[in-house]
């Protein structure tokens, strides 16, 4: 196991590993949207699957607009919002035997 620095934090990585491997191991939500730097040099997307990483490498994942870790799809959000509008208004009341409560993930 080799020690790499990924997004500023130490990470143990089984070598040999390519950039593509590291992206997968880190569960990057949108792997085709992420930009990658290795040792502060940008890696072309075409080279993700071939560039080998080494002990001590620093790897940075750059995401569009600061997001990137969330797997929820846009359609899911639309659907949730449609439901929550009515749920929000009847917060705390019983409807068809169900009690709606406020949870952080209930509101977009």
């Amino acid at each position: 196991m080799a020690k790499l620095i990924v997004n500023g934090e130490d990470q143990e990585v089984q070598l040999p590993a390519t950039v593509a491997d590291l992206i997968q191991q880190n569960n990057v939500a949108q792997p085709d949207m992420v930009s990658v730097q290795v040792n502060e040099e940008f890696v072309d997307r075409e080279d993700f699957a071939t560039l080998q990483l080494n002990e001590g490498d620093t790897v940075d994942f750059l995401y569009f607009m600061g997001g990137g870790q969330d797997k929820e799809s846009i359609e899911y959000r639309f659907g949730r919002l449609g439901v929550q509008c009515s749920a929000g208004r009847s917060r705390g009341t019983k409807t068809n035997g169900q009690t709606f409560s406020t949870k952080e993930d209930s509101y977009v």
């Binding site: 569009f64 997001g67 969330d70 846009i74 959000r77």
Partner: peptide, 13 residues
């Protein structure tokens, strides 16, 4: 990114 691939504030909040 292609349109719709990355959410904007009006979609994700």
């Amino acid at each position: 990114p292609p349109p719709g691939a990355v959410p904007t504030c009006s979609q994700a909040g």
